[in-house]
Write a protein that binds this DNA or RNA. Structure first.
Length: 576
DNA sequence: CTCCCTTGCGCG
DNA sequence: AAAGCGCGCAAGGGAG
């Protein structure tokens, strides 16, 4: 390593033999280059991490970090060029003329294939996408310079610095959670399936309770051969039995009064469990006591994460009991109470809404303020305000919020108006919504022409309102995602600082990087699950709470609002 | 057979 | 068929 100066940043790029390494000082000025062969690369990175704790600059986190984690090497900080490019090229804070907007080769889709996260360095080219970002160091260095310039010259450098750092930290967390996995008790899962559906039957036959449920439906329909799994056929059977519904969805069926309804709703519930999270899912997704989904940071336009494979973000509450800590370990399960309305209060500076939220259930606070009568009304009204409800009970309640919390409502109303007019909106830290599609714009201009038909106008108005609801929600959902990223990033650092346990206390199935340490195991928009040795469970829970306070301060400074958490330490993730 | 779309439902 | 946002996935069914 023999460099005299400590690098603040290290740019990594692929070469035929291994990796090119470019050392930058704290001001990102280059002062050295090296080439490291594939064999010693992991230990070189590990040594550099210990010695300098640099920020690693690379083209795509999973393609570098998965292999490091497989060898037990973690890094504290990185700059993910692909993710940060996606933010900066769209951000309204960035100058229209910034070079980062023109580096089109970095406009690459997220890597969602499991191969991209495979734990081998450089073995991926054969299966990699041709459209991926450039993997070489000079391209990375050039893009890094463009990104730094874009941030330095933008309207609010501090915000984009925070956002790009948080997004990059999220990329590390996503890779780490995949490596560690969510502790999953396959026997408990099987027990739930057997209790609910009946014993598994060979050859794909329906388990007994599901089959019995199907028979009850057919009996009530008076049709012994009715097909229940094909929507068109089921709809026809229902019509023949006199149940005149327009769809077979649960909510519409629930409004009907007919002997078939109760067993049919039960059948649909059981059938869903079997097809989505039955034994096939268990065999495919749970190995060695862990569920290892692919998390996709930045996979949603608003900045929320998506997932790929295994339905990681849709795990039914029914199965939470199967999420079970290893022996001698615990889960810290924490979720934020009413994250989005709290974020709305903070970003709009609405001190009345903040006061309603402070130190208590936000919906109870709204009731106490007299705006609405019940907690349920408060919840419906708030959701309606953030989603743009116009009709029904929700639409009826929203005007009351507009009177009680004018600043908060003005923020979402303005976002909706901007979207309806074809404009773009941004989150608190500067993630910006996509521009309207060409089809959308064409429909709007067509509707203003003299020869426009009534249908043209109706469609244009409907599309405008649709887009208004999207931008209305974008600013809140996206800022909540930023808060959650900051929470996650700070929590990750706090957990890494907790002491390791002795080898005999290890949970080896979490992999070499995490077997002896508290680690993040799951993240879902406003909830985290930490897997921790029991002796550190209290400290891990405290870290979760402290990280929330840090996130609030990072985003909103001293604005008087707390983000309340429900934190519990348990053996399973079961919710009460 | 593959591809693509729709439906319905799980999550926040 | 949700009224009211954002997703992913399984299954059916039609087109080729």
């Amino acid at each position: 390593m023999g460099v005299s100066e400590a690098p603040g940043w290290i740019v990594l790029g692929r070469t035929g033999r291994g990796a090119a390494v470019i050392l930058l000082d704290a001001n990102a000025e280059e002062f050295g280059r090296d080439e490291v062969e594939r064999g010693p690369l992991t230990s070189w990175i590990s040594d550099a991490e210990v010695r300098w704790a640099p920020r690693w600059v690379w083209h795509d986190t999973p393609q570098w970090y998965a292999a490091l984690l497989a060898d037990g090497v973690r890094v504290a900080r990185c700059h993910d060029l692909r993710l940060c490019h996606a933010i900066l090229r769209e951000s309204a804070l960035v100058s229209e003329t910034a070079a980062v907007r023109r580096s089109r080769e970095w406009d690459a889709a997220p890597h969602v294939d499991a191969e991209a996260a495979a734990p081998t360095l450089f073995e991926l080219d054969a299966v990699g996408r041709p459209s991926g970002p450039p993997p070489d160091a000079d391209a990375a260095l050039a893009e890094f310079a463009r990104q730094r310039d874009a941030i330095a010259d933008c309207a609010a450098p501090g915000r984009l610095r925070l956002l790009t750092a948080a997004e990059s930290a999220g990329a590390l967390v996503a890779a780490e959670m995949r490596a560690a996995g969510l502790p999953w008790d396959a026997e408990a899962h099987d027990r739930i399936l057997v209790e609910t559906l009946g014993e598994r039957r060979p050859g794909g036959a329906q388990p007994a309770k599901l089959a019995a449920s199907a028979e009850r439906v057919r009996a009530a329909l008076g049709d012994p051969t009715a097909s229940l799994d094909s929507q068109p056929k089921l709809l026809r059977s229902l019509h023949r039995a006199g149940v005149l519904v327009d769809s077979t969805s649960r909510w519409e069926l629930a409004e009907q009064r007919h002997p078939v309804i109760e067993p049919l709703l039960e059948y649909k519930k059981l059938s869903r469990l079997l097809s989505a999270n039955g034994w096939t899912w268990l065999a495919e997704w749970v190995a060695d006591g862990r569920f290892r989904p692919v998390f996709v940071p930045g996979g949603v336009v608003t900045g929320r994460w998506a997932s790929s494979g295994g339905g990681a973000l849709q795990l039914p509450r029914q199965l939470r009991e199967a999420v079970r800590a290893d022996p001698g370990w615990r889960l810290v399960v924490a979720d934020v109470a009413q994250l989005e309305p709290r974020v709305l209060a903070a970003m709009s500076g609405d001190t009345a809404l903040a006061a309603a939220a402070r130190g208590r259930d936000l919906y109870a606070g709204i009731v106490d303020s007299g705006a609405v009568a019940t907690r349920q009304e408060a919840k419906i009204a708030i959701l309606g305000a953030m989603y743009g409800a116009t009709t029904g009970e929700s639409g009826r309640l929203v005007p009351r919020l507009r009177r009680a919390y004018p600043r908060a409502m003005a923020l979402v109303d303005d976002a909706a108006r901007t979207g309806e007019d074809g404009g773009i909106v941004s989150t608190w830290l500067g993630r910006t919504s996509p521009a309207p599609s060409p089809e959308w714009s064409a429909a709007q201009s067509r509707a203003t022409e003299a020869e426009a038909s009534g249908a043209d106008e109706t469609r244009a108005r409907r599309w405008a309102r649709d887009r208004g609801r999207f931008t209305r929600n974008f600013v809140v959902q996206g800022t909540a995602a930023e808060w959650a990223l900051a929470w996650l990033a700070d929590l990750r650092g706090r957990l890494a600082a907790l002491p390791a346990v002795p080898a005999e206390r290890a949970a080896p199935r979490s992999g070499p990087a995490f077997a002896r340490r508290p680690h993040l195991a799951f993240f879902l928009h406003d909830e985290v699950i930490v897997h921790t040795p029991e002796e550190h469970a209290d400290a891990a829970a405290q870290a979760v709470t402290d990280a929330a306070a840090t996130a609030a301060h990072l985003l909103f400074g001293g604005f008087p609002l707390d983000f309340r958490l429900d934190v519990r330490i348990a053996e399973t993730a079961l919710k009460d």
